[in-house]
């Protein structure tokens, strides 16, 4: 992987009250790369992911995505916080898939996918509909476009959520434990869609406990613990011959 750098985080810190959730985290993700972030719960993986699209505000450090500094505008040697509208514009290019799907319950699967393109990107409704139908077919739900989220299984809802993220034609998609809320038998269908997505060259940052996915699909794996990035490197190496003993301990614990 030698593409351009799509996401770059430098010395990112974030505290909740007195709790240090992120402690000087630095990371680079290149275009077309799949990066898995693993680590015990409470290690800051999700928080880091949420900082990339500004669902959390960072205390210090900087994050660039799609060639832009996220959340701030530089004027001279000061960084000014962006307005609501500017932040919204930056988020458009960054898709996100949540652990609990967060589909809009009052809209059908198709309407969920169309909402962003029509309301935010001001796409022609007809064209947006065509694109949405294509995306739903791509995640294997062509026959469910008229269903409301409550009528779909967890795995189907998560696939609609992926289609919704794709609807915005993002250059990057963040996955926050996308299979953790699913019944075990539904995990595979979601991972398969993510696998296809990775194959199509989408840049993905995935917080996950699925070691199989991390090993087989991702290029790089980051191991976080206690808000620190402990180890980062090619997935094959990090997962089989970790340098850091904490990574090794974690891998032993999850693979038991």
């Amino acid at each position: 992987m030698s593409g351009e750098i799509l996401v770059k985080a430098v010395d990112v810190c974030k505290s909740f009250g007195g709790f240090k959730a992120l402690d000087n985290v630095s990371l680079e993700v290149r275009k077309g790369e799949v990066c898995c972030i693993i680590g015990p719960s409470g290690s800051g993986k999700s928080t880091f992911l949420r900082c990339i699209n500004l669902l959390e505000r960072i205390d210090s450090g900087a994050i660039w995505a799609n060639g832009e500094l996220i959340g701030y505008r530089r004027e001279g040697d000061r960084l000014h916080e962006m307005s609501d509208a500017e932040i919204a514009r930056q988020r458009r290019g960054i898709g996100m898939v949540f652990q609990r799907f967060n589909l809009f319950p009052h809209k059908t699967a198709l309407e969920n996918v169309i909402e962003g393109p029509v309301q935010v990107l001001r796409e022609n409704p007809k064209a947006a509909r065509e694109h949405a139908l294509e995306l739903l077919a791509r995640v294997g739900l062509a026959d469910k476009c008229g269903n409301y989220p409550a009528e779909l299984s967890g795995g189907q809802q998560q696939r609609v959520a992926i289609a919704r993220a794709l609807g915005m034609r993002p250059s990057l998609i963040l996955f926050d434990e996308p299979t953790s809320a699913l019944d075990p038998e539904l995990v595979a269908e979601v991972l398969e869609v993510m696998n296809d997505l990775a194959g199509s060259g989408m840049t993905m940052i995935v917080v996950t406990h699925e070691m199989g996915f991390a090993r087989n699909v991702s290029n790089n794996v980051a191991f976080m613990d206690g808000g620190k990035l402990i180890e980062y490197g090619p997935s094959e190496r990090v997962l089989t011959r970790p340098d850091n003993p904490r990574t090794a301990d974690f891998l032993r614990a999850v693979q038991r």
Partner: peptide, 24 residues
Amino acid sequence: GQYEAAQTIGMTSMQTLRRVVLPQ
């Protein structure tokens, strides 16, 4: 999670309120 989902598809606070939160 509904606010967050609306924000991640690039909606502003007003759009989020009008299109996602108020209808629910």
